[in-house]
Design a protein around this nucleic acid. Structure first.
Lengths: 162, 162
DNA sequence: AATATTGGTTATCAATCATAACTAATTATC
DNA sequence: GATAATTAGTTATGATTGATAACCAATATT
C-alpha cells in the first residue's frame, strides 16, 4: 500500500523491484537469512575441508562418543546411504574411527580421533567467529528470542529432539 | 557441562542424542526452522502445481508488472538459465505472458494472465494459512522482532534490496 | 527354526544449481 | 558510421545434492 511503484500501476517496472508481498512472509526472511548464513558457514569451513554436513557429523560425534551411524543419520536428518559417504570421508581422513560394537556386531561405534578433535576445535573456533560476525548486530536478548522463536516453529511442525 | 551424557563420558551413547554444541549455534536453529517451513510451504503449494521458485516468480510478476526476465532472475537470486525453465513452465500453463519490449527487442516484459492472477490469489491464501499455522505461537511482536533480526543479518552479509 | 527387522552398504536416479557457449539486439568506442 | 563490447535470453551440459531400491549380515520376533 502506498509504495513507490504507484502511479497508475502498469509502467515498465525496471530499476526498483517491488518486494511488497514477499516481505510480508516470515518464511521469506528466514530463508534469505539462512541462505546467507549457510553460504558463509560453508566458506568458513572450506579451509578445514569441511562442509555443513561433515562438520555437523564431527560435532555430534564429539558430543556423543560411540554414537552409531544410524543414530547419527537420524540426528542429522540425513538418509543412511548419504551418511555412509560422509562417514567414509571423515574416516578416510582419520578424523573419526569406526569400531564394531561387541553388543551388536552389525553396528559401528563412531569416535573422534586425536586429529579429528584437533580439527574440530579449530573449526569450531572459526564457526563461532562466523556466528559472531553475522549476528553481531543482534543483542543477546534478541538472539535468544530468535532461537526461542525457531524452537516454537519446530515444535508446531512436530519436530522432536533438543 | 552438566548434561545427561555425563558419567565418565565413554559409554554407548544410544537413545538420547546430545545436541549441546549445535544448540549453541543460531544458524543451526535458523536452518532447522527454515527447512521445516520450506518443506511445509512446498506441500502447501503442491495442490496448485507450484513450487517455491515458481510461486515466488508469480508473486514478483504480480507485484512488478512488465518485469524483465533478467530482473526477475536477479530479484530471485537465480541464474538466468534456470529462470528460463521456470518462466517457460509458467508460460506453458498460460499463467504469465512474454511480451517483446518495443524499447529493447532483446527483452521480454512478463505479465500475469487472468488465470495466473486467479491461481496467484488462491495460492497466496494457502501460503498465508501456512504462515499462520507455523508462526501461530509467535505473538506479533516476536514475529516482527524475528523479521528485523533477519534483515540485520542480511545487512551484515551485504545483501541489498528491500 | 523360520520370519521379520535393523545397521550398514552399494548402485542408481531425480532434482537442483551452476557454467560455457551461442544468437540477437543494443550500447560504446574510435 | 563501422567495429567492438555488452546485455537479454537461450541451449546444452555438468557438478552436486538428496532420495530410493535392493542387498548382506546380524539381531530380534514368533
Amino acid at each position: 500500500m502506498g509504495k513507490a511503484v504507484s502511479k497508475k500501476g502498469e509502467q515498465p517496472s525496471v530499476d526498483k523491484t517491488n518486494f511488497e508481498t514477499l516481505n510480508g512472509f516470515t518464511g521469506y526472511h528466514l530463508k534469505r537469512a539462512t541462505n546467507l548464513m549457510m553460504s558463509d558457514l560453508n566458506a568458513t569451513l572450506k579451509p578445514f575441508e569441511l562442509r555443513l554436513l561433515s562438520y555437523t557429523a564431527l560435532v555430534l560425534i564429539v558430543d556423543n562418543p560411540r554414537i552409531r551411524m544410524s543414530q547419527l543419520a537420524a540426528a542429522m536428518d540425513v538418509e543412511r546411504p548419504n551418511m555412509v559417504v560422509i562417514v567414509d570421508a571423515l574416516e578416510g581422513r582419520e578424523l573419526i574411527s569406526r569400531q564394531r560394537l561387541e553388543t551388536d556386531r552389525r553396528a559401528y561405534a563412531l569416535n573422534i580421533t586425536l586429529a579429528g578433535r584437533s580439527l574440530y576445535e579449530k573449526a569450531t573456533v572459526a564457526v563461532r567467529g562466523h556466528e559472531e560476525r553475522l549476528t553481531r548486530q543482534l543483542d543477546a536478548q534478541t538472539r535468544d528470542k530468535v532461537i526461542e522463536a525457531m524452537k516454537l516453529i519446530l515444535k508446531i511442525g512436530g519436530v522432536a529432539h533438543t
